[in-house]
């Protein structure tokens, strides 16, 4: 499973975030290395929602964190506004320079409770970013802006602002997280599994708020989830990841109507209510995802792939084009 090749990259003025050959490795003791993300490349256009989907251990959250340099990737580049005059390569700067561009890319996290400081009041939590940057923007009225974003996410500032996080439900905490990210007017919002810790009856509220905020504040979203149906719902373009590599990338409609990679097809067939475009028999072999310390040679999905051949072990598939905006890294793509 591929990664090799960058044919999926777009050459457009509209690209606001470009990730090239991203590699994330962590030491695992005894001179071993966890290959969490291996050679991942994608880009995001202005106003677009890019969904990244995959199962646990596929490197989607690590990728999300690498976008905000938490921690800095082992190699590869992350560039804001590539090609433009104000192009900033996040992977090439550090210290104050990096800090000063941070407000442009904000993030919301999976655990609504862990992402809010239990000892601070909602007003301070949301106003934090504004206060940090107050020297640069002295004319910003912090309280007014906090009230504005609180109202935008559907919370009443009079009631909510003076409370602490534990007085809110999970869904409300997630709204507060969104408000905190929006307060400093970012361009890109990275959402790392924002609804997976929430009750099903509350998920839709948060997904709808994200859509609303995207329109209202002109955001570009990177949306990470393990849930295909959620990703399908919010995304314009989707990246499917497995064991640190990109399997398939493409326009959401094309990818979900004609899934080309066997792994994407397996995911669609395994959903609680399987998609009708795949056959119910297309399931993964076995329950065990290989260790990222010692990933399989060739295609990383080959150990569980229903279509595996000898070629898959010897050669790593290169990204190939399946449609106008649809790319796949597989030797035998398409429906079986």
């Amino acid at each position: 499973m591929a990664g090799s090749g960058a044919i999926q990259m777009r050459d457009s003025d509209e690209v606001v975030l470009r990730v090239e050959s991203l590699v994330m490795e962590f030491p695992a003791g005894r001179n071993q290395v966890v290959h969490a993300v291996s050679d991942v490349s994608f880009d995001v256009c202005r106003g677009e929602t890019l969904g990244i989907v995959g199962e646990s251990g596929c490197g989607k959250s690590t990728t999300a964190r690498a976008l905000v340099q938490l921690p800095r990737p082992t190699s590869g580049t992350v560039t804001l506004d590539p090609g433009a005059d104000g192009q900033v390569e996040l992977t090439g700067i550090e210290g104050e320079a990096l800090r000063s561009v941070r407000p442009r890319v904000q993030m919301i996290f999976q655990d609504p409770i862990s992402s809010l400081n239990p000892r601070r009041r909602v007003r301070d939590i949301i106003g934090e970013g504004l206060i940090i940057w107050q020297d640069q923007h002295p004319d910003v009225d912090v309280d007014a802006r906090v009230d504005e974003v609180l109202r935008a996410v559907g919370l009443d500032p009079v009631v909510a602002a003076s409370r602490r996080p534990h007085e809110f439900s999970g869904g409300q905490c997630q709204r507060i997280s969104i408000a905190r990210a929006l307060a400093i007017d970012p361009e890109i919002l990275i959402c790392d599994e924002p609804v997976s810790a929430l009750d099903v009856s509350v998920q839709a509220q948060i997904l709808n708020i994200l859509e609303e905020m995207k329109e209202r504040f002109g955001l570009t979203l990177v949306f990470i989830s393990h849930d295909l149906s959620v990703v399908r719902n919010v995304s314009d373009r989707v990246v499917v990841m497995y064991l640190g590599k990109v399997c398939e990338i493409g326009n959401s409609d094309s990818l979900f109507s004609e899934p080309a990679h066997p792994y994407t097809r397996v995911l669609l067939a395994s959903a609680p209510e399987p998609s009708t475009v795949v056959d119910a028999s297309e399931v993964a072999i076995g329950d065990e995802v290989p260790s990222p310390i010692n990933p399989p040679s060739g295609c990383r999905f080959r150990t569980r792939c229903p279509r595996v051949t000898e070629l898959c072990a010897s050669a790593e598939p290169v990204m190939r084009k399946m449609g106008p905006d649809h790319f796949v890294a597989c030797h035998f793509p398409g429906s079986p």
């Binding site: 964190r65 905000v68 938490l70 800090r99 000063s100 941070r102 407000p103 890319v105 904000q106 993030m107 996290f109 999976q110 655990d111 862990s114 992402s115 809010l116 400081n117 239990p118 000892r119 601070r120 939590i125 934090e128 970013g129 940090i132 940057w133 997280s177 905190r180 990210a181 400093i184």
Partner: peptide
């Protein structure tokens, strides 16, 4: 390890600010 610390860094808080504003109140308890 908590995500609010990561959130503060993403907002652009300095290390000192994170230690004083985010961690200290929790460690003081």
């Amino acid at each position: 390890e908590r995500e609010f610390v990561a959130a503060a860094r993403v907002l652009g808080a300095t290390d000192r600010r994170i230690m004083v504003r985010e961690l200290l109140p929790n460690v003081l308890i």
